[in-house]
Computed example of a mutant assay.
Amino acid sequence: MDDATARMRLESMLQELDKSILVLGADPAAPKERSAADAGAGLTDADRTRAMIDAAARHRMAVLAALRRLDDGGYGRCVDCGRPVPEGRLEARPEAARCVQCQSRAERRR
């Protein structure tokens, strides 16, 4: 993928993530009255929302890092081994920082 296309896709992803984070983090327009039974369900909803916000924030950080790599000339190279990241991987995940092999190793370490 050429740099201009990558930048356009990454910037579009960043805008969508910012919108999602804003919507998820926004308070409801009007407070709702809740029964005691609903209070427990609300915690689950709040936990789920927090998890979605956290995932979107991590994804946003990956997109910003990819944009920095574009600016620095390192986009498309694995941050671990320096080999080229396969074109198909960048098509599917423009924010990908690692080749498939290094990504697999990183995930196993977690």
Rank of each mutant, 00 (worst) to 15 (best):
G76W: 05
V63H: 05
A66C: 02
R83C: 14
M61R: 12
M61V: 03
D72N: 15
L67G: 05
P86Y: 11
D72C: 07
L64A: 00
V85N: 06
L64K: 05
G76C: 07
E87Y: 13
G76R: 04
D71C: 09
A65M: 05
H59A: 09
V63I: 09
L70H: 04
R77L: 07
A96N: 11
A57V: 05
L64T: 05
D72P: 10
L64E: 01
P84D: 14
G76D: 03
R89G: 06
G73I: 04
R98I: 01
E87K: 13
G88A: 15
E91T: 08
C81N: 11
R60T: 02
L64G: 03
A62D: 12
A56H: 07
C81E: 10
V63Y: 04
M61S: 12
C78S: 03
L70I: 08
H59M: 14
G73K: 12
C81V: 14
E95V: 00
G73F: 01
M61H: 07
A62L: 14
R69C: 04
C99R: 01
D71R: 11
R58Q: 05
C78V: 12
A66H: 10
L70E: 12
R68N: 10
G82D: 10
G82H: 10
A65P: 01
L64S: 10
C81S: 14
Y75L: 13
R89A: 13
V85S: 12
C81Y: 06
R83H: 08
R77H: 04
D80N: 15
P94R: 00
V85H: 00
R98G: 00
A65I: 02
A92T: 06
